[in-house]
Design a protein around this nucleic acid. Structure first.
Length: 900
RNA sequence: GGGCGAUUAGCUCAGCGGUAGAGCAUCUCGUUUACACCGAGGGGGUCGGGGGUUCGAAUCCCUCAUCGCCCACCA
């Protein structure tokens, strides 16, 4: 077991993520490395604040992994990096949770509604809010602990909460200022009312659900003519009790004669006018539509145009109120529906009932149908605030990635409606508005200010009532990029880190959050809140379903971390984060990347066991051995690909480039190539290889660190690959070295030769342990030189006894393989028979002939020669030549065999 | 009703104008002192259908089909 106290030490035989993660995270946090370093270009990211009482789900795991990759990458590149942490008070969500807990204890909220009246004990606002703070204290640390387990390198000392003192001050200032500018105002209009939660919700919190309902046709008698009826169709019979008109289309000949007359509203007896309005669609229903201005958004507009009365018939619980006939009062809305239909039928006024599928608005939190309800609420003039936000995206000052989201953003922003911000809840920022006896409103920073205003207004001191409502949670989140940096104080952090560099989030909150941050950022900071917005996909389950508790298909990221380690989960997230696509992580995938971590671990162990260590002053670019120069070139290519990919948020490409380099190139080839060297007699070659291996490993863990920080930090530490922490080590700079191309050409050829020999051994079922000689014919001088130079490597990896130049005819039973510039000959007498070999060669030749034929046709095409890129044509010619050379060597080989 | 995206190997997905790829699964072989959470090799796809543009199309355009998501006031 390794000694945790010593900076370097032997890596343990098996890689166990759990222990490493805890220890390394503590080292990072204690070192202060999460803080901005204080110098360099700023790079800043604000976390999308999770609900303070929430717990980590897969969406968080994805979102925060990607942010951490960007943050760690930039930190290593020398940026003054801040990742701002914090949590959100999540008004409705949190209030619901605590209400439910209280209900379980028989405690209800004294909010004046009918619901919950059965509770034994009712508590008031102050006590409830205290309970919520208690709940926050109890559960509030969970999410931040879980983010630590993921490895998130957030500047924890700067953690903020949307309800903390500073952020509350920011909210207050924004509200008061917008009010004074006329951009926040009160209005009496229809709102989306949630009868279960007893609060207004914004348009965005409403979701349309498809409901199989009915279309009821009611006959309304026309006044003054007992035999004439006008038939209306409705999906909501109960609202007829609030009807104050009937609308028909002005061009609808069926009803033209009735326009201007009145109908008598059945069950109620009210005289209601029949009006002509474009809203009415002759194709729908009966072409005559009943108008209920107080309970339907369209009807409200129609009513306004024709001066129709808006009669509210519902209580806050959506029970019928006293504005309806006595027999219906106090009925719940769905009971009322049945009662109304029954009463209409009894009077012979129910014409018919059709099945009807339609969309019904539901509260996204409560899940109950919302009720359009006429009340006075606070609004933000979003249309005005949206203008500079739209412009900044048009100008490219804020860029969406992928760019296609800009279209969605524009569409919504250009059609934006006033934002209803007041909520009839207790948990949240209480609106700083006070009312006088005559309901005159006074908005100010505190009650004293409001009283002063009132005194001036009334000419005397008056008692004021404070507005009981709180603000929409998204109101405070909208300020997040500057409020967390200290605004309204002009802090050094605010000056340095605003605008932030990039916002990383899912598309589901573009409207809720991103758009509103842009509005507020422009208005109060006069600058975009972030330069780019990276929109990632949503995490779905393996069948492509959105994860949700109700579906029971939730995968717990903490469970995956327990099983496979945080690094494996992170790498999975990165590897699957293809821009613009949703993510469906499977445990098999996570397991695969756990295996990758293990592979890296073992490679490091191997290096350690072989005495590979950093040699001060050693420059791998000056290495003499071609393998060492080659691996450096491969590393350089992988690094360049990684950097390019991260710059464009192609996390998947970055992860894959590193995966393939680390496993497919470094482990599978380089470490195997160098085994003969490390076991060989040439001391200087050995030393050079050890030093090179250490350098490659050092740079590799640097490149991988943003993705898999824990294991790389552990390897860095245990192998003593550098000073201090890896997380603050400088990103590798790998300049191009001369001779790179030559090394690549040479080693690529060796790889190909070995691969061919291995394939042949496997196909021919050459028994294990059979020692073979390799001869080569027709080899060009270059190929012959390579075979000689890399004889050790080729012998070892292809499991050969020796290599020599074949001069005479191949021995009976020899097998011949064409590689570029040479024909390799393996004596397999007694192992395979000549007939089988002839067949194999014939097949190979046939395959090549097919390819050559295809290329010939292409090269004979005048259009291709004239119009294709000359490089492409040249490339095609070269490939044809190679194939031709290989074919003729195989034909020769076949002849040699046949001659035996 | 608008808008967006998807359809590529058994599965999950890359590739998005110039030789069809990866991981997993599958099959064969392998006790070579880093690693069986491994190594070597193999099989498997007319890139949803149909048109078009192009010397050349999985890749661009049109169209159809199927699936998914977002927005929308359809009585």
């Amino acid at each position: 077991m390794a000694d945790a106290e010593t900076p370097t030490g032997a890596l343990e035989k098996t890689f166990s993520p759990g222990k490493i993660e805890e220890r390394q995270y503590a080292r990072w946090e204690q070192s202060g490395a999460f803080r901005p370093r204080g110098s360099g270009e700023p790079f800043s990211v604000v976390i999308p604040p999770p609900n303070v009482t929430g717990s980590l789900h897969m969406g968080h795991a994805l979102n925060n992994t990607l942010q951490d990759i960007l943050v760690r990458y930039h930190r290593m590149r020398g940026f003054d990096t801040l990742w701002q942490p914090g949590t959100d008070h999540a008004g409705i969500a949190t209030q619901m949770v605590v209400e439910r807990q209280l209900a379980a204890q028989g405690i209800g909220l004294d909010r004046g509604g009918a619901a919950g009246a059965s509770n034994a004990r009712l508590i008031g606002r102050r006590e409830f809010v205290e309970r919520v703070w208690e709940w926050k204290a109890e559960s509030g640390g969970a999410i931040t602990r879980q983010l630590r387990r993921l490895g998130a390198s957030l500047a924890w000392e700067r953690e903020r909460f949307t309800m903390d003192e500073g952020l509350s001050a920011a909210v207050l200032k924004v509200f008061v200022e917008l009010y004074r500018e006329g951009l926040i105002y009160r209005d009496n209009r229809l709102v989306n009312w949630d009868p279960k939660l007893h609060t207004t919700i914004s348009d965005l919190e409403v979701e349309q659900r498809e409901i199989k309902g009915h279309l009821w046709h009611f006959r309304y008698p026309v006044e003054g003519d007992p035999d004439t009826f006008i038939t209306v169709a409705t999906t909501r019979p109960e609202t007829m009790l609030g009807d104050t008109g009937i609308a028909v289309h002005p061009d609808d000949a069926r009803y033209r004669h009735l326009v201007g007359k009145h109908a008598i509203l059945p069950l109620v007896g009210r005289r209601i006018p029949i009006v002509a309005d474009e809203y009415s669609d002759p194709e729908k229903g009966t072409g005559a539509v009943k108008i209920t201005p107080a309970h339907d958004f369209n009807d409200f507009e129609v009513g306004r145009r024709h001066g129709l009365e808006a009669i509210n018939i519902f209580t806050a619980d959506a029970y019928l109120n006293d504005n309806v006939p006595a027999e219906f009062r106090g009925m719940e809305r769905f009971a009322a529906r049945k009662a109304v239909v029954a009463a209409m039928e009894a009077q012979g006024l129910l014409a018919r009932i059709e099945d009807h599928v339609h969309m019904v608005p539901h509260g996204d939190r409560s899940g109950v149908p919302i009720e359009p309800w006429l009340t006075v609420q606070w609004y933000v003039n979003a249309g005005e605030l949206a203008k500079p936000a739209i412009k900044s995206v048009e100008d490219g000052r804020t860029v969406f990635v992928p760019k296609s989201w800009e279209k969605t953003f524009f569409h919504w922003m250009r059609n934006i409606q006033p934002w209803a911000i007041s909520r009839q809840l207790w948990w949240g920022h209480q609106i700083p508005a006070w009312y006088g006896p005559d309901d005159q409103v006074f908005v100010d920073y505190d009650e004293a200010g409001a009283r002063a205003q009132a005194a001036k207004h009334y000419g005397r001191d008056v008692e004021l009532r404070r507005d009981p409502d709180v603000l929409d949670t998204w109101f405070s989140s909208a300020l997040w990029p500057f409020s967390t940096l200290g605004w309204p104080e002009q802090t050094p952090e605010l000056r340095k880190f605003y605008p932030t560099s990039v916002l990383v989030t899912g598309f589901d909150i573009i409207f809720f959050w991103v758009a509103r941050m842009m509005m507020m950022g422009h208005h109060f900071m006069h600058e975009v809140p972030f330069h780019s917005v990276y929109i990632h996909g949503i995490v779905r389950d393996e069948r492509g379903q959105k994860m949700s508790k109700s579906k029971g298909n939730v995968v717990d990221p903490l469970d995956l971390i327990d099983r496979y380690g945080a690094d494996a989960l992170r790498f999975t997230m990165a590897a699957l984060a293809t821009p613009g696509r949703d993510i469906k992580p499977s445990p098999a995938r996570v397991e695969g990347y756990r295996n990758f971590a293990t592979k890296l671990w073992n490679a490091a162990r191997y290096a350690q066991m072989n005495g590979c260590a950093i040699v001060p002053g050693f420059d791998p670019a000056a290495a003499k051995l071609q393998v060492n120069r080659w691996i450096l070139g491969e590393l350089r290519r992988a690094a360049a690909e990684t950097e390019a990919a991260i710059a464009e948020f192609r996390f998947n490409d970055a992860a894959n480039a590193l995966y393939h380099f680390a496993w497919g190139t470094f482990c599978d080839w380089y470490l195997e190539f160098t085994k003969p060297v490390l076991n060989g007699a040439d001391a200087s070659a050995r030393d050079e290889t050890r030093a090179t291996t250490a350098c490659i490993l050092r740079d590799l863990v640097k490149l991988l660190h943003p993705f898999i920080p824990f294991i790389t930090e552990e390897i860095w530490e245990k192998l003593g690959l550098g000073e201090g922490l890896l997380m603050t080590a400088p990103w590798p700079t790998l300049p191009e070295a001369s001779g790179d191309a030559a090394a690549k050409a040479e080693l690529d050829w060796v790889v190909q030769a070995i691969t061919e020999i291995r394939a042949l051994r496997s196909e021919m079922n050459v028994p294990a342990g059979a020692r073979l000689a390799l001869g080569y014919k027709d080899a060009s001088a270059e190929a012959a030189a390579r075979l000689k130079k890399h004889a050790d490597i080729i012998r070892t990896l292809a499991r050969l006894e020796h290599i020599e130049e074949e001069r005479g005819a191949p021995a009976r039973g020899a097998v011949q393989i064409a590689v570029p510039e040479a024909t390799l000959v393996l004596p397999l007498a007694g192992v395979i028979d000549a007939a089988a070999e002839r067949a194999r060669l014939g097949k190979e030749i046939g395959k090549l002939a097919g390819e050559i034929d295809k290329m010939d046709r292409k090269l004979a095409n005048p259009g291709f020669l004239a119009k294709a890129d000359p490089e492409v044509v040249e490339d095609q010619r070269e490939r044809r030549q190679e194939a031709e050379a290989a074919r003729s060597r195989l034909v020769a080989a076949l002849e040699r065999i046949s001659a035996l």
